[in-house]
Nucleic acid binder design. Structure first.
Length: 223
DNA sequence: TGCCAGGCCGGGT
DNA sequence: ACCCGGCATGGC
């Protein structure tokens, strides 16, 4: 059934996207040269600023281990290499869990994983320790090129502060709402998430109740 | 200096 | 089904 869905929020989400794109331009996400680098970054940046995570990736690169099989073989070196990313003992376990799954089921080849249906892969990723909904969706969208919208803390904060969702909206509910009110475009999902992180970092931090200078300022609820 | 950062897990109600 | 503490480093 082709949805004739032209309600108000439909235009609101798209309008925000357009405003952000006009303001900031293309973000060229995800930062990372290969799908595997993107996956590693997705795990290392959990609740961690990108600066710290990217330094950990650099360490892995410098060691010549930014490759699934090599990294799995040298997994004992991981904690030392990724220390700067924080939570490094947990993240070492998470990385190892992913590597074991990835190498044994897909021979460490992203094309093999991408052959499967999007939601089948998603369910599978969620069974791996350390991969929750956001990390799974980052892998799907940015490493596998699947059409799925990535929700994160900034997404929730920005849309709730603009009165479009409740602050405690669940991951899935927000994801559904956004996907149902935007054109179904992988390219747009890719760019929109990146733009939300950009504007979130610069204008929508936790401690700032309402921003008055951000490009979306006119959409703020009156305080 | 304390707070924050591109979450997720496990144990407790 | 929620709720919450733990996980850890580095920058401002």
């Amino acid at each position: 059934m082709p949805q004739a869905n032209t309600n108000l929020s439909n235009t609101a989400f798209l309008k925000i996207y357009k405003t952000l794109y006009k303001t900031f331009g293309p973000q060229h996400w995800w930062p990372g040269e290969t799908p595997f680098e993107i996956i590693v970054g997705a795990i290392l940046t959990q609740n961690t600023n990108w600066h710290n995570a990217s330094r950990a990736i650099e360490n892995i690169k410098m060691a010549g281990l930014l490759d699934p099989k090599k990294l799995l073989k040298e997994r004992r070196r991981i904690p030392c290499l990724i220390k700067t990313s924080g939570f490094y003992r947990m993240k070492s376990r998470y990385l190892r869990a992913f590597l074991e799954h990835y190498v044994s089921n897909y021979d460490g080849k992203v094309e093999r994983m991408a052959e499967k249906d999007t939601h089948a892969i998603r369910r599978e990723l969620l069974t791996i320790q350390g991969i929750g909904p956001e990390t799974a969706d980052v892998i799907l969208l940015y490493a596998l090129g699947k059409r799925i919208f990535v929700v994160d803390g900034y997404t929730k904060r920005i849309f709730s502060r603009h009165g479009m969702v409740e602050p405690d909206v669940s991951y899935g509910a927000l994801q559904d709402k956004i996907e149902n009110n935007l054109p179904k475009s992988t390219r747009l999902y890719n760019e929109f998430h990146a733009l939300l992180v950009r504007v979130g970092k610069e204008y929508c931090r936790k401690n700032e109740p309402l921003c008055t200078t951000c490009p979306l300022g006119e959409l703020l609820p009156r305080a």
